[in-house]
Amino acid sequence: MSVVVANPSASDDYFRFFGLEQQFNLDLSALEQAYLAIQKEVHPDRHARGSDTEQRLAMQMATLANTAFQTLKNPVQRGLYLCQLHGVDARLETNTAMPAAFLMKQMEWRESLEEREEDLAALESLAEEVAVSKKDTLSEIALAVDGAKNYERAAELLRGLLFIDKFALELDDAISVLV
């Protein structure tokens, strides 16, 4: 019995591995279907009677499928991965430079959170504003990657999205205390 995978030679490109187009706007149901098909094929139970090599290869493919799926399923990770594939390192650890308008918005949000931490309606309104900002940023990333192929711009937007996501979590925590 041999391990059959959609495209095992494409392990250096998670999109090709799943037979998907290399793009930010991804059909998540197609990703999940491809993932499940590969997992079914390489599941260790299917190769329990195979040689040690076949069992090891099945385990490697299952691990690769898991890693690839988790990367592509998450918009931030998918965007960073696309940037990496095109030679752009987002330098998340060292590059925290952001446009002034974005930083001002972040400061406004933080002040609103601190000033209204006991006001559920105000926090829920702020959460809606943050959700819209996240949606807009995701759209901008899709335009930068899928449209303009501008991976430097995408990396900048992804750094901003990380800030937005982090603040959204803090905001959710503040709301959950009041609910």
Rank of each mutant, 00 (worst) to 15 (best):
A65T: 12
N66W: 08
N66A: 11
T67Q: 13
A68W: 02
A68M: 03
F69G: 05
F69R: 05
Q70L: 11
Q70F: 12
T71G: 04
L72N: 01
L72P: 02
K73H: 15
K73G: 09
K73Y: 15
N74A: 11
N74Q: 10
P75G: 05
V76R: 05
Q77W: 13
R78M: 02
G79T: 01
L80T: 02
L80S: 03
Y81C: 01
Y81M: 05
Y81W: 03
L82W: 05
L82T: 04
L82G: 03
L82R: 02
L82N: 05
C83V: 01
C83S: 07
H86P: 06
H86V: 03
H86C: 00
G87E: 06
G87P: 09
G87D: 09
D89K: 07
R91T: 00
R91G: 06
L92T: 08
E93R: 10
T94F: 11
T94V: 09
N95S: 02
A97P: 00
A97S: 02
M98A: 10
M98F: 04
M98H: 11
P99V: 02
A100I: 12
A101C: 10
A101F: 08
F102T: 05
L103F: 01
L103D: 09
K105Y: 05
K105H: 10
K105T: 14
M107N: 14
E108F: 11
E108W: 11
E108D: 15
W109E: 07
W109L: 09
S112F: 09
L113G: 11
E114K: 15
E114T: 13
E115A: 12
E115Y: 15
D119Y: 09
D119A: 06
D119S: 12
L120N: 11
A121W: 12
A122R: 06
A122P: 08
L123T: 08
S125D: 15
L126Y: 08
L126H: 08
L126Q: 08
A127R: 10
A127Q: 13
A127W: 07
V130T: 12
A131W: 01
V132C: 02
V132T: 15
S133I: 03
K134M: 03
K134H: 03
K135A: 04
T137Q: 13
T137V: 06
L138N: 13
L138T: 06
S139L: 13
E140H: 14
E140L: 13
I141W: 06
A142Y: 07
L143T: 14
V145W: 01
V145D: 00
D146N: 03
A148Y: 07
N150Q: 07
Y151C: 00
A155Y: 01
L157K: 07
